[in-house]
Nucleic acid binder design. Structure first.
Lengths: 209, 209, 209, 209
DNA sequence: GATGAATGAGGCTTCATTCAT
DNA sequence: CATGAATGAAGCCTCATTCAT
């Protein structure tokens, strides 16, 4: 039991160090100093700095994955929207409550090396898959207009990611509830005034403008 | 003249190396080998590896910035949309034509260190500023419904960025024209069928659902 | 009783590990894994990895020493030869039956550090002393021709050692009885045909060729 | 040119360090301190401590190999003996003139790791091959009595090696000329007084004692 | 200007040994 | 007695940068 605590403690310390200095600038010395353990202890629990970061990333992805629920179409269009909202809210809440993890996801886990890239790629793959599926579902329910679901899924993920990224690099944005609402509305109703949309030919569902 | 060519040659070589191996994995040796110059020569043209990367990033940001035109409201709602489309198209074209730069932007320029973050932050700042301004303009023209322009600007940027990111990490997405259309339509008209939007109360422009 | 068994068990395990991986490449972890004891237990029985190896070497040298009997001159020239043969045979048998120890002797005990060298030096010293003494005895019995007993003793030891060394590094050599016979005959009668030796002036016992 | 000198200088310094402290105990710091070069310079010339030692060993083996000449049977039995003497003399001279190399060969190059063992094995292989061939030649010339040439070749090499080994670990032995004579005579005429050999049945060339 | 040999700070990792339980 | 988690000294190697030619 003590071991698991120790391990968790080192992991936490490393998380903070990585978030502050970045993966490359962070040294094992930084981590063990912060954790207050000996050098050897570090390697007792983690095979390498890289392996520890791997672990951190896996944990983060698992948390994120768990906070996103698959859409249940059973409750109609309004229900689907509510579920989408809940998902966005959960992701934002998770990441905003843990800025260190946010920085890891948004900065450190990017372009580290092919091995990491693969892991990140696969994570976004799962996320895109979930999103795409929801869009296809929406199409079947005649709720979503004809779109290229692959591309639009990317746009949706991108909106959430960018909000988080901007927060990660320090930009001040509104409170979480506003963020969720704006992201969602931007996605579902778009930017135009209904009246204008109609006038510009955006009132039909087909692609022939 | 000769000097400027040499400098450009080293810069190009470095771009490829950084894009292939990433900033940290790329060594000065890699760069001078690719460029075919001596080690000392490298430092004759660039103060440090870091300074060279700075230069590369500045160039990239300038290119990107130049490919985005400020929206001219004089040509009405349809004109504004066309200009937005042109901007998205220009950015995609620029980056798709230069995968090395795309990789730099999407991977290497992220989370390098606080100094770089500032540069990147400022770039996105200018971009967000432009986008926000367009949105405010749209509001004034009564074309855009009431939104939090700061947040929505982030969403728009995020959509474009994510499309580019997914391409950078190797995902196959449709041709550029499809991408532009989908991004734009996702943004301006949203996902919902007009009929559904109306039913769900998304037909009014105000926020009181 | 139990303690002595445990100690012996660790010693055996270490012997195998050292023979397989070599002294330096062998870690205490390797040894305790093979022995199935805890790390602390190791240090309960042996002061250090080095001390254990010392022990192993002492045991080996004692075994070897015991397998070499002092020559009894009482039984004439033929008896002396038979005793020499028995000694060589005993050493070969001992080492061939225990390849792990052979490897230790031939590889690991060599050039470890000045402290070990002393131990090894002293072992060979005793061996050379025994051999030299036999040669001196042979001279007194007028059986051995005039030789530099110190040097020739080294040659004799060298022949046996090299045969063992070649076996240790994996060379296929004939069965033990052939080895003993060849080593012995090489030593006592030399290489030349008696007729040739006579012709070349090797028939006299003195040094004036 | 300067580079080759630098390289040779580091090599020499390393040779001394290895001879004094042994391969494992010797650190790269020891070597660069002795050579008076920076750490990086070491790695400019040698990929690793191991690679440098490899080089040292290769050089040594080449020197040794060059100092051993293939026996020319054209000059009769006496000529063959003279050539054998010359070979032994050359090897002893080479090694005695360079105690550092002697220690490397006798101590450090033994049992280092499988890679090194192979190199050493192959060196002795070539040496044994040369020696065996000479023995076969001697048999054909009816100069050498019937022996197992493989085993006897090992004995011959062993005699020379052991003399060198004993010197390497610090034993005082006679001057080189005495060593050569004793080794040679031990090999060619054996230990017995001709008279005794005859009496014991060692006067015939066949194996039926 | 151009070259490339030389530098050395600093990083990661191993592993023999200790000691509280 | 036995355990195994913890320790930290010490080693190897990399690579951005400098500078004499």
């Amino acid at each position: 039991m003590k071991k698991e605590q120790r391990r968790a403690h080192i992991l936490e310390s490393a998380l903070e160090v990585f978030a502050t200095k970045g993966y490359h600038a962070a040294t094992v010395s930084d981590i063990i100093n912060k954790a207050g353990v000996a050098r050897g202890t570090f390697y007792l629990y983690f095979g390498s700095k890289r392996a520890l970061f791997d672990q951190l990333l896996d944990d983060l992805f698992e948390l994120l994955h768990n906070s996103v629920k698959r859409i249940d179409p059973g409750r109609g269009a309004a229900g689907v929207l509510a579920q989408m909202e809940a998902n966005i809210d959960a992701v934002l809440q998770l990441m905003l409550d843990n800025r260190a993890m946010l920085r890891i996801l948004m900065s450190e886990a990017v372009g580290l090396d092919p091995g990491f890239d693969k892991k990140v790629y696969e994570f976004y793959d799962r996320l895109l898959e979930l999103t795409s599926r929801s869009l296809v579902l929406g199409r079947q329910m005649k709720v979503v207009r004809p779109v290229d679901t692959r591309v639009v899924a990317v746009c949706i993920i991108g909106s959430v990611k960018e909000v988080l990224y901007q927060i990660a690099i320090g930009r001040k944005l509104p409170r979480r509830d506003v963020l969720v609402r704006e992201i969602l509305e931007y996605g579902v109703r778009g930017l135009l005034e209904p009246e204008v949309a109609r006038r510009l030919g955006y009132h039909r569902s087909d692609r022939t403008k």
